[in-house]
Design a protein around this nucleic acid. Structure first.
Lengths: 206, 206
DNA sequence: GACGTGTGAATTGTTGACAATCGTAGGTGG
DNA sequence: CCACCTACGATTGTCAACAATTCACACGTC
């Protein structure tokens, strides 16, 4: 437990916070992130900072240069959506088909929990939270499919377009629609209609 | 310069060597990789080893567990190909279209250099090298397109199926065919026929 | 004024040491 | 014989210090 409330296993915690900061615009694209500054800021040594920076560099959130540290990657251009949407549809519907026939009550309980949190985040217009919950919902499908390859691919994709999630959420006239769409997906899952579920998932991905 | 010939900036070099070892089967799936052992083996401290392991974990080559180190990930199932081939085609042809009209002499020089190395590797039946050169060729297209998003996505995909590249290469009756196919792609680039180039690239991706 | 060179501060990259955690082996009790 | 507990060695996670590199600024020369 550090002075900043972080516990052992710092890398992931630091990476998560930095990712949040980048997505929230607290670090601009092109901004240089200094290990020394971050170590001061998190109240830890540079070792775990470096590891977190490696992770975020691999996610594409940062761009590294030997001996010169890392800068915040520029936002993915909008044109990338035309590419990523079909890829996401391919990957996520594939995952859904893998496990649809073995959905359990535990699965539904987990989704209901996510939906409850999503509803609250929508009510509060907390867009960082709605993004993370939207991502978490879709991630749960990949995790449930139980294929690490798919999950790795999907995570890379989503890391690159998180900013787009956020922009899309903020543009919605009624943020409750985020919740409603995912509510509807889970409801179709309950009906056991796989093809309807696949179609609804595809509609959600855009 | 370490005793093992490594120079400063160890992470990438170590990651590259470990990746090669994993792909060559020198570490079995499920095998635990100990930082201490690797540090001894490479003749360096554990710091850069840890960073390399973070990188390879993000690539999906390794699976980490807090406080317990990392194990070698199991090979991607063959069924993943049916998913990855279309994704690769989507990504790589998109990239090719982005830069095709601005191909330079420097581009051709780089590809000729790759092809020369590929030819030699084929003659020597050095399948690790043919895989890396095949990957390098395709990677060059992504790099040339100048979109970090695409490159990150592509790298994640390819990291997961490198073993498949290797198996495919080893199955070829004549390894020179690897060279010949890529030779033909570059030749079509020289003719400036974009659509033919896209089609030939798609045929190569399988 | 423009260009080149040198210097020093800040930072990155690596190392070795210390703290914390885990897994295994052995001992004890029921 | 089995279950539980404890101890210890090996390893992971983190820290602070040292070495190497980069960049910005100041100064000198043309």
């Amino acid at each position: 437990m550090t002075a900043r409330g972080l516990i052992r296993g710092l890398r992931e915690q630091i990476a998560n916070q930095l990712r949040d900061d980048i997505l929230s615009g607290r670090f601009e694209a092109g901004a240089r992130l200094s290990e020394t500054m971050l170590a001061d800021r998190f109240g830890v040594s540079r070792g775990p900072i470096r590891e977190a920076l490696v992770q975020l560099t691999n996610e594409g959130m940062l761009v590294g240069k030997p001996n010169c540290g890392v800068v915040v990657a520029s936002a993915a251009p909008d044109s990338i959506r035309e590419l990523i949407v079909p890829i996401r549809r391919t990957v996520e519907t594939y995952a859904l088909r893998q496990f649809f026939d073995s959905i359990t009550d535990d699965d539904f309980a987990a989704w209901e929990e996510l939906l409850e949190q999503m509803k609250k985040a929508c009510q509060k217009k907390d867009y960082n939270a709605t993004v993370e919950l939207d991502v978490a919902f879709h991630r749960s499908l990949l995790v449930r499919a139980g294929q690490p390859d798919l999950l790795a691919i999907w995570q890379t994709i989503v890391a690159r377009i998180r900013m787009h999630f956020r922009q899309a959420h903020m543009k919605m006239k009624d943020p409750m629609r985020i919740y409603a769409e995912h509510r509807a997906i889970v409801d179709v899952f309950r009906k056991g209609d796989k093809e309807a579920a696949v179609r609804m998932l595809e509609v959600n991905i855009e």
